[in-house]
Amino acid sequence: MATIRIPEVVPSPVQDSEKLQKAFLGTFFLLSLYAQLISLSLSLSFSISFSDMSKSVCCWFKGLGTDEKAIIRILGRRDASQRKKIREAYHQLYDKSLIDFLFAELSGDFRKAVILWTYDPAERDARLANEALKSKKKNITQLQVLVEIACSTSPHHLVAVRKAYCSLFDASLEEDIISNVSLPLQKMLVRLVSSYRYDKEVVDSTIANTEAAKLHEAIKAKKLDDDELVSILSTRNIFQLRETFQRYKDNYGKSIDQDIMACGKGLFESIMKVMIWCIDSPEKHFAEVIRAAIIGLGSDEDSLTRAIVSRAEIDMMKIRSEYFNVDKNGLDNAVIGDTSGDYKDFLMTLLGAKI
């Protein structure tokens, strides 16, 4: 279900690190050359100005900067465990952080996408969660990131994210939610990120019927922050909840997310819809995130990057199929039409294109 293309023969982490270092060396050469030009222009008199010399140097050595294509070929075609080994090997070889070098050498949306991809997945999600919580805007675009992490990943990954968050930001994820999100949404989000759901496929049909009735009663009364509703949605295993959602639809004629959105169009209702989708059909949610990022008034590159980077190793094939069901133009064509340059090439590499 992943879309990244890992080579049949994967170079060693040391070989990959050496190639990455070589990809950076062009920039180091130019910086050194410019430094020498500055020194020369200050100590000697030339008929040609320093500005003219700079233009000449740029012409002579055009293309000697960072080799972005090499970075895409290497990092864009390695899985999480391979990228971890590359980070470790790079640090051992050069006593420098690969992430720091990527930050210094790249720019714009391309830089953000490559760095997010290069991070350990738990650290990446911890940083995305912190960015969402510290944002001045607390709308659906920001806060749905927390729901994605809590409801569309494994319980083990969620624990790893919480540990990484504490290590990176000297506070727990729960503490920062309480500090930055108001009630009643605060209560729901804290319960979600604190949960450790059973991850085996165990379903009890009787419980599904009973809890579908409880959910319907709370939603009908528009008590979306009801303690029992929050408890059911934040603690039951994913397979049990999917059965409960199906019983809800069978018994009451509408899907649970439809009834939730009938309660209102506020942030709480929108977050609950995202939660239902991330539990029941994550590919549907992420296809919608990508579609909204592309078709809006001005692209939302952050959301587009997050969706592709975070799901390329998990279920991007399903997301691609779901996207096609909604937009017959297809995901690949949508990304190609909405992005450009190295950023486009990197996203397309994660989507499995042969760049």
Rank of each mutant, 00 (worst) to 15 (best):
T141A: 11
L224Q: 06
Q186W: 08
F101P: 03
A70S: 15
V57F: 11
S340P: 10
F169W: 03
L192V: 13
I4T: 06
L173P: 00
I232P: 11
K220V: 11
K220W: 09
L31W: 12
C58V: 05
L146E: 10
R162L: 08
Y119P: 10
E175K: 13
L37P: 04
K134S: 14
A2F: 01
D225V: 05
V202S: 13
L241I: 07
E18F: 07
V289A: 05
S299A: 08
A164W: 13
S310V: 00
F28K: 07
A287H: 01
I219G: 12
F245A: 10
A221G: 01
D52S: 14
D125L: 06
L44N: 15
A212D: 01
L20H: 04
K22H: 05
K112W: 01
T206P: 05
S81I: 13
D79T: 01
L233C: 07
S154Y: 02
E123G: 08
S303V: 02
V335L: 03
I6F: 07
G330H: 00
I238W: 07
T206K: 14
S54H: 10
F46V: 09
K137T: 14
F169L: 05
I48D: 08
E174F: 04
Y323P: 01
A150H: 03
E105T: 09
I336K: 15
I271Q: 07
N325D: 07
C151F: 02
F286S: 05
C278W: 05
D259P: 14
S194Y: 11
R77E: 06
K112H: 10
Y94L: 01
V202H: 13
I336F: 11
T305D: 01
E18W: 09
I276T: 09
E301A: 13
